[in-house]
Amino acid sequence: MSNAPQASARAKTFRPGFMARNRQVITPLLFLTPGILFFLFYVIFPVIQSFNLSFYKWDGLGEAEYVGLKNYKKLLTDRAFEVSLWNNFKWLILYLLAIPAGLFIALFLNQTVTGIRMYKSLFFFPFVISQVVVGLVFTWFYDPTFGLLNTILEQFGLEPLNVLGDPNLATYGIILAGLWPQTAYCMILYLTGLNAVDPEQIEAARLDGAKGWRMLWHIIIPQLRPATFIAFVVTIIGALRSFDLISIMTYGGPFGSTRVLSFYMFEKALSEYGFRMGYGAAIAVVLFVIMLAFIAYFLWSMYQDEKGAR
């Protein structure tokens, strides 16, 4: 009987501490803390700083002068900003073509046909090369003197085109160059999604007589909704922050016709004489708000879909 009090005392003595009792909560937090700190320091803090800087007139060196909403008022009468904004919407609308294109390529590559590995490598290739290389390749492709495009047009007896030298065609030519790697990225997302498609549902649909477009629309595409959501978000972000292809292929020309908001922000903040940091920050804020609105819409739509499926 005397051993019972001693055992009780030892149990009280060796009671696990706070860290041991909460290790299932603390351990994930310790792993997440570095990533959260990096995200706060390199993403959230610069966004807040950009909002704050947009209310100032600053050349990046001297003392900043508070000007309130003047930078935003100038945007309303800035013709170059209007062209850049309109070009961004062109990018946004046409860039979405990468999603259905990536889906149909993924459906083709998901088949068991001869040489499918070679086809996958060819379609995957644009995704792994640099945007700078893509820009240079398409610059040579569009070249009015020795470019492959005009060589093909001449074979059909058509007049040569100076795509990047024509203000009416240059933006569409750059968008086409951007669609090449973006389609490859969407293809990869859909190939991953197709691996998760339930084969039992496919077999049940076949027994019910579904095939072709009916099978695709009613059985396969609903199961690819997560991949489609990611493809939409990534494609929209890519369209709105398009910069590198424009910088490589036209540098905003001809006559500023291919500017987008990200490139115009760079011009105002870092390229022009005087370094108008506040004005560039105001352009960045507008771009951020547009991007945030689209992403918030898709997040809300996905949340509603999941809520309705419960």
Rank of each mutant, 00 (worst) to 15 (best):
A282I: 05
I219Y: 15
Y251E: 04
G173N: 02
G252V: 13
L240A: 02
I99E: 13
G147W: 01
V286K: 08
W213M: 02
I283L: 13
T114C: 10
K90I: 14
W140M: 03
I248F: 11
I236E: 00
F243N: 12
L29T: 08
L161Y: 00
Q24L: 02
L189S: 14
Y303T: 07
P226E: 06
A293D: 07
G209A: 01
I36M: 06
L75M: 15
G252K: 10
A20D: 04
L103T: 12
L158T: 12
Y56D: 14
P126I: 01
S84N: 09
L96K: 11
P144V: 05
I99L: 10
A184K: 09
E306I: 05
G193E: 12
F123R: 01
R23S: 08
A196K: 05
N110H: 13
F127T: 08
V289R: 04
V197G: 12
Q6Y: 05
L179G: 08
A64M: 03
R225F: 10
F124S: 15
F138G: 04
A98G: 05
F255P: 00
R259C: 10
F123T: 08
S8W: 00
M302L: 03
L94Y: 06
F39A: 05
G62Y: 08
L164F: 00
T192F: 12
Y303M: 01
G209T: 02
Q182S: 11
D59P: 04
A269M: 14
N22W: 04
W217A: 00
M265G: 13
P100Y: 07
